[in-house]
Design a protein around this nucleic acid. Structure first.
Lengths: 207, 207
DNA sequence: GACAATACCAAGCAAGCGCTTGGTTTGTAA
DNA sequence: TTACAAACCAAGCGCTTGCTTGGTATTGTC
């Protein structure tokens, strides 16, 4: 189950917009602009111009500007949950599962969906309370993947700290890479993954 | 050299506004509002109302709204650099210095200056390029404190990963606590500090 | 008590915002 | 060819925004 086929099946189930379609293209441009200038500073005129239509025409596809933000976040979290699940399933030991999760999250933050992931982190407050509650439900599924693996490692004695705290710390550490990591800086995502594992005192030699 | 005396000496040097004065009170309220609603969503009318004056009167103290944001960031980073420096100087071994830095940063993020620190992280893009450049200069001094300690630990063989990467990861992990840590949740800042140290495989027993 | 300088108010301007409206083009299928 | 819906345009409304302006209290100093 590779990344493309996961995306395809989500598109087929109508859980994620086809990136080639009008809606998908708009959401990608929206993610780019929201990331670049922030949600509030991005006007509906900016969004419309980015896909070559008039600002009023946006409201044929979305009822409000906030609905666009919500769609960006919801589709991103759906896609990434599926990718994470696949990464966990493909790995063997719990240690490998953790490494796979770290690698996958770094990929989602610094790869194709990076702009949307950054929006998820930095534009959270711009989402209405109702939308926040909905996205939080989706996030819980995603987070449980991590906690299961971390708790297993804790049980094995490989991990000294509390799984819940560790996950929160990793969330921050990995999200933050979006502000400084550049793929052309002589450090690959695999290198970075290894650095994180090393930082946790869980290098390949051990455990 | 305790926290209050550090603050006092900065106020005396005019590097930080007196928290009791008009300007200091405005900056504190600004930090609170920027953190709560975001910079863009906070209007000059909100800011003025928070300190009990008319919106136009704000512009007697600051030339633009952005200047308020800049002042919040600059004064915060100045204060925290001084606090960090004191924390490092007071600690003995390099391991203790790292723990002191972690403890101090957690304190600055989740304590009195927490709102301003969150603004520094989440409202960065709202700062003009010129202001960004200025704040970045201040940040470099601050960051060097960390790198010196991490490089020493690396030299001692206690730290397996690259100091630069580790600092970036710690920045993200510690900053992120602002989104989830609550002092009344049965976890003190000292507990949290220990968790971070434990997560890095550097518990007290070792090194 | 005179006199600046500082701090503030009341009112409002110009620009930009999200969104609406009424009407036109485009794609699709009988 | 006709019928109809989806996609889009051109125009602009009502409101909010950061900021300005001209004037009035308040404060400190000699």
């Amino acid at each position: 189950m590779n990344q493309d086929s996961i995306l395809c099946s989500l598109v087929a189930d109508n859980l994620v917009s086809d990136p080639a379609g009008a809606r998908g293209r708009l959401l990608r441009e929206a993610a780019r602009l929201f990331r670049e200038k922030g949600y509030e500073r991005t006007t509906v005129r900016d969004l419309a111009a980015a896909v070559g239509i008039q600002s009023g025409s946006l409201f044929h596809h979305f009822r409000t500007k906030e609905e666009i933000l919500k769609a960006v976040m919801v589709e991103t979290i759906r896609l990434n949950t599926a990718l994470m699940q696949a990464a966990v399933d493909a790995a063997g030991s719990h240690r490998d599962k953790l490494q796979a999760l770290i690698r996958a999250e770094l990929e989602s933050i610094n790869g194709q969906t990076g702009e949307a992931m950054a929006v998820l982190v930095f534009e959270w407050r711009s989402l209405s309370e109702d939308s926040q509650a909905y996205v939080l439900e989706l996030r819980d599924i995603y987070e449980q993947l991590w906690l299961d693996v971390l708790e297993a490692l804790r049980g094995e004695g490989v991990l000294a700290a509390d799984p819940f705290v560790v996950r929160r710390m990793l969330t921050g550490a990995l999200s933050w890479t979006v502000t400084w990591y550049r793929p052309d800086g002589g450090l690959t995502l695999d290198d970075l993954t290894e650095q994180v594992v090393a930082m946790m005192g869980m290098t390949n030699s051990g455990a």
